[in-house]
Design a protein around this nucleic acid. Structure first.
Length: 697
RNA sequence: GGCGCGGUAGCUCAGGCGGUUAGAGCGUUGGAUUCAUAACCCAAAGGUCGGGGGUUCAACUCCCCCCCGCGCUACCA
């Protein structure tokens, strides 16, 4: 493996439109922090950078919703996240933000450098423009009737009722959500990054070059993406909030948030190391690693590297150990449903349990597949692992040393194997020592491979071996007959405790400090690098050294503690966030006159036959008796109704809608559905049967 | 529908370029023990390795089909 001189480690820039939850932590920040702590302990030169991602339409929408300016809005969430990270102990070297001036310049320079090479494609196309507000409307700012399901308030990028992805021009009767007015089409120019031109290079660099060293889930998704063919991507937007496109003819244009965000890693590094930041981004002997969640894979593995390649002077990511997702109590985390454990709330409720959260999240880290956090599991892991195995081991060694040696480290010398009992002790010692060294090597090997669950397990193994050593040698029995042996045993046990304090630092930084305090081990601190680079047990506590009183590393989690958390979770779900409630009821459409309505021929029909459309997940093909004819209607309801249950049902449909071909079959009408707040579709039916062909008015 | 990743003991997960009785931690049960936050230590029970075919002397591991979960994608008038 290539030897690197230094590391640049990034953790995904969290989007500044809401607080952090444990899914974010488990996905990117905890693994990144664990890895960085490991690197630092080995004495590596590392820059650990992160910051808030503060641009994009979603920010402007969120700001509007909360009645704030975008600036106030991002300030609020930037500060909230920054504090939560600090309080939790994620050890960024810098937590910056993309609204900083230095980032504006960095991003603009980056753009300009590629622009000057003539790489970007310029293209002018018609887009919706709000004449009253004098702005071009981003997709999310336009609502209209969904051409698919008739949902009157579909967004310009997606209909939330039927899930169809849309472009604004497909919407019927589009309206601006800013002014409520109908927007007009206007030509506007944008710049595109020619991703397609990097296909050959990506195949070489990624598909060939990282076949074996990238995680299989990451590699598989990238390969799938590249194989499907790459398209130019637009990298500018018509928007007020963002980084202005640094060109003379680009008034009102900003860089697309996805373009500027990853450059934020570079800006943050510049801010951190104004004089030698380039070493961390341009020296091939620097190892660049991105920690992200799986939603970010394509961006960090394909698009950003292509941008870096295009710019020309930067190094490329050497690895992108993306995690899958974390679920909560068996269900997906959901911001809108408020189904989440928010980091800042956890820290308020359980301020003394930071290591516990780190431990549990790491132990269920979604490294290879989605995983599930439950409070019950949290309690069990804390009680039966942290308390019972690790805390207990450290505590019993401390207590024994105080009891028999007044808290002074016993003398250190070879124990002569003069009796059978002593021979047994020596055998136990040899066994423990061999196991411990092996475990240390495995722990460090796992950390190098980004296998943090495994690494943490090996760290805990040190305590398991320690417990076994005590049980095997039984110093409390020997105290009656052979204090020299007791001293030898406890001297070694204290050595193990000292090594554990070093081993647990990347996983349980709080416990590491506590153990060091108990050992009164200021003298030990400069030994950390030795432990982490020699990869074996080292000598930690000098003989006759005075220890501090024992303190408990962890407390048991009582039932009442987790019951409180579970209840809190349930309560939240019954009471969705305020923002969600606003969303649940869509705003009224502009007024129409009776004649508009009269154009519609709405009727009730009866489904005679139904079948699932082949090769479609959403479409059912219905044969409907409309009274005047039997017609085929395709409807995107397959996720809500099976073909079988549709047969015989009365349905309301639009009878005079122009026929439309879908997947090779012509649909002669449109079934009307009601959409519940949760997105479920339900048929609109008369409350008693009517004859097929009955009109609705 | 296509593509990617996954489906291994009650739970969380290892493993597997085919080859002895499929592993660990936690949980459960039994034993031992008392230095320790009833914790630790020992032992046992517990799995037809998602289902069905196939290749092979031999498959959990390779091939095909199917089912389930997650993600991307197509369709959704």
């Amino acid at each position: 493996m290539k030897k690197f001189k230094r590391y640049t480690v990034t953790a995904a820039l969290p989007y500044a439109n809401g607080p952090l939850h444990i899914g974010h932590i488990a996905g990117a920040y905890l693994p990144a922090d664990t890895y960085v702590r490991f690197l630092r302990l080995r004495g590596e030169d590392v820059a650990f950078v992160c910051g808030s991602d503060e641009h994009g339409v979603a920010i402007t929408i969120g700001a509007k919703k909360e009645g704030l300016t975008p600036r106030e809005f991002v300030d609020k969430y930037h500060n909230l996240m920054k504090k939560a990270f600090t309080d939790f102990g994620i050890s960024f070297d810098i937590y910056s933000r993309t609204s900083n001036e230095i980032h504006y310049k960095t991003a603009q320079d980056f753009f300009k450098k590629i622009y000057d090479q003539g790489l970007f494609i310029e293209d002018t196309s018609d887009q919706y423009y709000d004449e009253q507000e004098k702005i071009f409307l981003a997709d999310r700012y336009i609502v209209g009737t969904c051409p698919n399901c008739g949902h009157p308030n579909a967004y310009g990028d997606q209909c939330e009722k039927c899930g169809t992805s849309l472009s604004p021009k497909q919407l019927i009767n589009p309206r601006s959500t800013v002014s409520g007015q109908a927007p007009v089409l206007r030509p506007t120019k944008h710049w595109y990054f020619p991703l397609d031109k990097f296909e050959t290079w990506l195949k070489d660099w990624l598909i060939e070059g990282h076949k074996d060293d990238w995680k299989i889930n990451v590699y598989g998704q990238c390969k799938s993406w590249i194989d499907q063919g790459l398209q130019p991507r637009s990298i500018t937007r018509d928007l007020e909030w963002g980084i202005p496109v640094p060109l003379p003819d680009a008034k009102g244009k900003v860089l697309y948030v996805w373009f500027d965000a990853p450059i934020g890693y570079i800006s943050a590094t510049k801010e951190l190391k104004p004089n030698d930041w380039e070493k961390y981004w341009k020296d091939p002997e620097t190892r660049l690693i991105h920690f992200i969640g799986k939603d970010n894979i394509v961006f960090h593995c394909i698009i950003f590297p292509s941008m870096l390649k295009a710019e020309g002077s930067f190094i490329l990511p050497d690895n992108v150990p993306a995690n899958e997702f974390l679920n909560l109590e068996g269900e997906k985390l959901s911001t809108s449903r408020n189904h989440a454990v928010w980091l800042h709330e956890y820290l308020e409720d359980l301020p003394t349990r930071k290591d516990e959260l780190r431990y549990v999240l790491n132990s269920i880290s979604p490294e290879t597949k989605d995983s599930d956090f439950t409070w019950k599991d949290y309690q069990q892991k804390v009680n039966s692992e942290l308390v019972a195995i690790l805390g207990n081991f450290v505590n019993r060694v401390m207590v024994l040393t105080w009891k028999y040696f007044d808290g002074k480290v016993p003398s250190e010398h070879e124990l002569p194997g003069t009796t059978d009992k002593r021979k047994k002790i020596l055998a136990s010692y040899t066994q423990a020592h061999t196991d411990l060294n092996k475990t240390v090597k495995e722990m460090i090997g796992a950390l190098k491979d980004f296998k943090f669950r495994e690494a943490q397990f090996q760290m805990m193994n040190l305590a398991r071996i320690g417990n076994k050593f005590l049980a095997d040698t039984e110093p409390w029995k020997l105290a009656k007959e052979d204090m020299e042996a007791v001293g030898a045993i406890l001297n070694y046990a204290l050595t193990v405790v000292g090594n554990i304090s070093m081993a647990c630092e990347p996983f349980l930084p709080g416990a590491a400090v506590s153990i060091r305090r108990q050992l009164n081990a200021a003298a030990v601190e400069n030994k950390w690098k030795e432990f982490w680079t020699k990869e074996e047990l080292i000598h930690t506590v000098p003989q006759h050294h005075q220890l501090n009183p024992a303190e408990l590393l962890f407390r048991n989690v009582e039932d009442t503690e987790i019951e409180k958390q579970v209840e809190r979770l349930k309560k939240k779900e019954n009471k969705p966030a305020a923002a969600m409630q606003e969303n649940a009821v869509k705003p009224l459409k502009p007024e129409i006159v009776f004649d508009d309505f009269a154009k519609l021929d709405i009727r009730v029909g009866k489904v005679l036959a139904a079948e699932k459309m082949e090769k479609s997940d959403k479409l059912l093909k219905l044969l409907v008796d409309s009274g005047v004819d039997k017609r085929t209607i395709l409807s995107g309801i397959a996720k809500h109704y099976t073909a079988e249950e549709m047969v015989g049902k009365q349905v309301t449909f639009i009878a005079n809608l122009a026929p439309r071909k879908m997947m090779g079959i012509e649909s002669q009408g449109m079934i009307l559905m009601a959409e519940d707040a949760d997105g479920k579709l339900r048929l609109i039916q008369p409350n008693t049967d009517v004859n097929p062909g009955a009109t609705v008015s």
